Structures are given as C-alpha cells and as structure tokens.
Simulated assay, not measured.
Amino acid sequence: MKVLSIMQPWAMLIVLGVKQFETRSWSTKHRGQLAIHSSKKIDKFACRQEPICSLLAKHGYTAKNLPIGVILATSHLSDCIKVILDTGASARLDDGRLVTGIEYYFGNFSEGRLAWEIQHIKKLDKYVPAKGQLGLWNHTITTPHPAEHP
C-alpha cells in the first residue's frame, strides 16, 4: 500500500476527519488506497493554536501524547488538485471548489501548490510502527477482514 508521512498534528487531524486536504508542493498520479503515517516530528506551536488545540483535546490528545512514527489509518486518495488562487482567507482549486474556514487554516494553499483530497479514513485498531520516508512509499499493512472483528 502507498503511504504518506505527515507531521503531527496534521496527520491526526486527517485521522479525526477534520482535515480533508493535505497540501503539498508536488503532485502524484496515484489514486486509491493511501495509508497515513505520522512522522517523528511534532509541530508543537501548531498544537497550541486554536482550533487545533481544542480539536485534539476533544479526542484526548496534546503535543505530548500524539502518536509518532506509526501508520495511523488507511484512506483513499481521490484527487490531487492544483491551487489556482489564494486570497489569504480562502483558496480556489483548479476544479472550481473553494476552500475556506478551518480547512483553509489547516493547509498551505499558496498558488501552484497541490491539494490532495483524502477520503474514507479508517483509523487502525492497532498502529503500525514504521520509520517513514519522503514522498510516497510502500508498506505492507495487514488489516483484519471485517468478518474477523468481534
């Protein structure tokens, strides 16, 4: 499975379902399954900012207990869309959508960057330790078949 390493708290915000786009300076042709890996770095400044601090706290997280160096979830990368306009308060994507509010705050939507649309997030019952890498990388993730869950 393809894996993307993301610094905390951004990785956890995706896993919690409050961050739909991961912004990158580079594109990918990959579409489909994508695992979310939390890198070993934590942006502690971001963790102290609102609404990030409150969103993490609501789920029992702080900068001190965010999981790092593990694969947190599986998801579906549905699109990689170029940012064509950044007003400083919102961003227009190449497909016509407008990104506003906390979604805009949670990314770097500078013109020319790419918004990776991540959907269907499934948090793993047990996080998978992994070193992580730059770019997209491969990892074998075994998840129980739905019939195996109690």
Rank of each mutant, 00 (worst) to 15 (best):
Q49W: 00
E50A: 06
I52G: 04
I52K: 02
I52Y: 02
C53A: 14
C53P: 00
S54T: 13
L55I: 15
L55T: 12
L56K: 01
L56S: 00
L56A: 00
A57G: 00
A57Q: 13
K58C: 06
K58G: 00
K58Y: 03
Y61S: 06
Y61P: 04
T62N: 08
T62F: 10
A63L: 04
A63Y: 07
K64Q: 13
K64I: 01
K64D: 15
K64W: 01
K64C: 01
N65E: 06
L66Y: 01
I68Q: 14
G69Q: 03
G69M: 02
V70E: 12
I71V: 15
I71R: 06
I71P: 05
L72Q: 04
A73F: 02
A73M: 04
T74C: 09
T74D: 03
S75F: 08
S75W: 05
H76S: 07
L77S: 08
L77N: 07
S78K: 14
S78Y: 03
S78D: 11
D79R: 10
D79M: 01
D79V: 01
D79L: 03
D79W: 05
K82N: 11
K82L: 12
V83S: 05
I84D: 05
I84M: 05
I84K: 10
L85K: 15
T87N: 09
G88E: 06
G88L: 06
A89L: 10
A89G: 12
S90L: 10
A91C: 11
R92K: 14
D95W: 12
D95S: 11
G96D: 01
G96S: 06
G96Q: 02
G96V: 02
R97Q: 15
R97D: 13
V99K: 07
T100F: 14
G101D: 15
G101S: 14
I102W: 12
E103I: 06
E103A: 13
Y105D: 10
F106S: 02
N108Q: 10
F109G: 13
F109K: 11
G112P: 06
G112S: 08
G112L: 04
G112E: 09
G112M: 05
R113S: 08
L114V: 11
L114K: 11
L114Y: 15
A115T: 12
A115F: 13
W116D: 03
W116E: 02
W116I: 07
W116T: 06
Q119K: 15
Q119V: 11
Q119L: 14
H120R: 14
I121Q: 01
I121W: 02
K122A: 14
K123R: 14
K123Q: 15
L124T: 07
L124S: 07
D125W: 05
D125S: 11
V128H: 12
V128I: 15
